[in-house]
């Protein structure tokens, strides 16, 4: 079991290295020129060329990559000994955004908590609603409640996120003024405001996801409820509730946990549409802004961080398999 964990950890590191190389190569062939962004309107070809040299962009890609990686672990200083104001980028340095005049790491660490609250809140909502709904549907298989739940889920699942988000924004906030206009405050600073701002984004993301988990949970439950060990559980004299939750749901949990882990990992990398609609300063909005500005260091940094979340989510899901299914643990 320990061997498995170590092996998976090793695989994770390899994936991260591969990922960073890919991202680095991919973005270096883009037409965007980071050197151009260092001087804005005052750019002349000479200045751009000088900046390019200062940033080391004239160096071979391999050297640029090692510099970048070194920056992540040891930090780096831009303009060092160039006679210009030095810019310090402490470890973990993911580059420096000249258009925002800030280290990329700082921009990302400001954005991540917002996205994290968004992701966690909607995750809890959609899992609670989705799994409960799926269990109820499966227990009422073929009856009107099942049909109603399934068709509602189908409709909600097919609605695009931007549509759901905009409808909520327009109806709840603009039309009826039930909530104030979104204005993000950290929960530690002003919880009521935080809650008012997050409620609709949570619901927006939870809508489509809950619909998906209703269907997934129902499928799993219908399968496990037909298993022989469910009959055994009933034959033991257990309550229906114990049979449903402790036996049927427990047995069908693996795919649900897998999907949930990956969805959460994906979401932690930024919810572009929802953050945009509800004006949340999260990773998604940072990504959109940096794409619009062709702010390459930020794009690279956000991509790396988002991908890292997904890789970590994969790792966690693999570990959870072992917790859930003892057969995995032994083989």
């Amino acid at each position: 079991m320990l061997g498995f964990v170590v092996k998976r950890l090793g695989a994770m590191v390899v994936m991260l290295v591969g990922l960073s190389i890919t991202v680095f190569l991919l973005f270096s062939v883009l037409p965007a020129d980071p050197a151009r962004l260092t001087c804005g309107k005052s750019c002349t070809p000479d200045v751009v060329q000088a900046n390019r040299v200062r940033l080391g962009l004239d160096k071979p890609l391999t050297e640029q990559y090692t510099t970048y990686v070194k920056g992540i672990f040891a930090g780096r200083t831009y303009n060092e000994g160039q006679g210009v104001a030095e810019i310090d980028c402490p470890a973990p340095c993911l580059g420096y955004s000249f258009s925002q005049q800030k280290p990329v790491t700082e921009l990302i660490t400001e954005a991540v908590p917002v996205t994290m609250w968004l992701a966690l809140g909607s995750f809890v909502l959609w899992m609670a609603i989705g799994v409960t709904g799926g269990v109820i549907a499966s227990l009422n298989r073929g009856r009107w409640l099942d049909v109603a739940l399934q068709s509602t889920a189908l409709v909600l699942y097919s609605l695009p996120t931007f549509f759901v988000g905009l409808i909520m924004l327009i109806v709840v906030i603009v039309q009826f003024g039930l909530l104030p206009y979104p204005d993000y405050y950290p929960p530690t600073q002003d919880f009521p405001k935080f809650f008012d701002t997050m409620l609709l984004p949570w619901l927006t993301i939870a809508t489509a996801s809950a619909a998906f988990y209703v269907r997934l949970t129902r499928t799993q439950m219908v399968e496990t409820l037909g298993e022989d060990y469910i009959r055994t559980a009933r034959a033991k004299g257990l309550t229906e509730r114990a049979v449903t939750v402790k036996h049927a749901l427990r047995a069908g949990l693996t795919p649900i946990v897998t999907a949930a882990g990956l969805d959460l990992g994906l979401l932690l990398g930024g919810a572009i549409i929802v953050e945009q609609i509800f004006n949340l300063p999260g990773v998604g909005r940072l990504a959109v802004g940096s794409v619009i500005d062709s702010d390459l260091p930020v794009i690279t940094g956000v991509t790396l961080v988002a991908a890292t979340f997904i890789i970590i989510a994969n790792f966690v899901v693999d570990l959870l398999y072992m917790v859930i299914d003892p057969r995995v643990r032994l083989s």
Partner: peptide, 18 residues
């Protein structure tokens, strides 16, 4: 499970795997 109990044909599928 108290006054009356049952055993089934296939013991592997009749026991919960987890």
């Amino acid at each position: 499970g108290q006054r009356m109990a049952m055993i089934f044909q296939d013991p592997l599928s009749s026991l919960h795997p987890f």
